[in-house]
Computed example of a mutant assay.
Amino acid sequence: MEWREFAEQMARLARDLLAQDSLQATLDEIAASAVRLVEGCDAAGILAVRKGRAVTLAACGSAVQECDRLQGELGEGPCFDLARHKDGERVYRIADLSRPRPAWQRFAEAARPLGIGSMTGLLLYTDNDDFGALNLYARRPGAFGKDVETAGWLLASHAAVALADARTIDQLEHAMETRHAIGEAMGILMERHGLSADEAFSVLRRISQHHNIKLRDVAQRVRTEPANPA
């Protein structure tokens, strides 16, 4: 693919990512776009590490989730190490899974039966956030050369900006939904028990703290469960 054509595709990708209607849709589109736009890429996914555990945030291709599971189970692998910021690297690559780095030997042996010949991981980050690793998989060894790595890096940079924007919108929408749920629950308690707004909120907060349940979940229970009979 010529770089001019690729640049045009990157511009379209930026618009497509910003047009997604949720954080998960943005993650899914990034993985699908990697397969579509990066030459030689047969599958792609986004992996994050949460409390030492590998979490697949998005997958395009049948081997992605199993590959992520193996890395988390073994505690090694290019994408797993990248997502947890080991060594401060931003790109990891296994050009040929039959000849991996010694540190990834167990993972490579387990991953080869999945039909993976080579793979590249690229950190998804902005100045303020790290989102995990965008992982590219190919069936044949040596699929990801320097040009392809550069193309993947450009895609990852676009993706990180879109994720930052999507997460901000998702957090705002979640906060609005939470406030709405709590407001409705307070109104129900005020009507049922003749409480003031402050008293109703104190009831919700007390239940949340006593049972170690999020305030939003307490509010949801009040909204959905019938009043206790007199």
Rank of each mutant, 00 (worst) to 15 (best):
W3Q: 15
E5Q: 13
F6I: 00
A7V: 08
E8F: 01
E8V: 04
A11S: 15
R12T: 03
L13E: 10
A14W: 00
A19C: 06
D21V: 03
L23K: 05
T26L: 05
L27E: 13
D28H: 05
V38D: 10
C41A: 15
V49N: 12
A54Y: 03
C60P: 04
A63R: 02
A63I: 10
R69N: 07
G72F: 01
G75N: 03
E76K: 00
P78V: 09
L82E: 12
A83F: 08
E89L: 13
D96M: 00
S98H: 11
Q105F: 06
F107H: 10
E109W: 00
R112A: 13
R112G: 13
P113T: 02
I116H: 07
S118V: 05
M119Q: 13
L123I: 07
D127T: 08
D129F: 06
D129Q: 07
G132L: 03
A133K: 02
R139G: 14
G142S: 12
A143T: 06
F144D: 08
F144H: 06
G145T: 04
G145E: 11
K146S: 14
E149N: 03
W153T: 15
A156K: 06
A160C: 12
A162V: 02
L163F: 09
D165P: 00
H174I: 00
H174N: 13
M176C: 01
E177A: 15
T178I: 03
T178S: 14
T178R: 13
I182C: 10
E184V: 14
A185E: 06
M186I: 04
L189Y: 08
R192V: 09
H193G: 12
L195D: 10
A200K: 01
F201H: 14
F201S: 05
V203R: 12
R206Q: 12
R206N: 12
I207K: 05
H210L: 10
N212I: 00
N212E: 12
K214R: 14
K214F: 11
L215V: 04
D217K: 02
R221L: 12
V222A: 06
E225Y: 05
P226I: 00
P229H: 05
P229Q: 01
P229I: 04
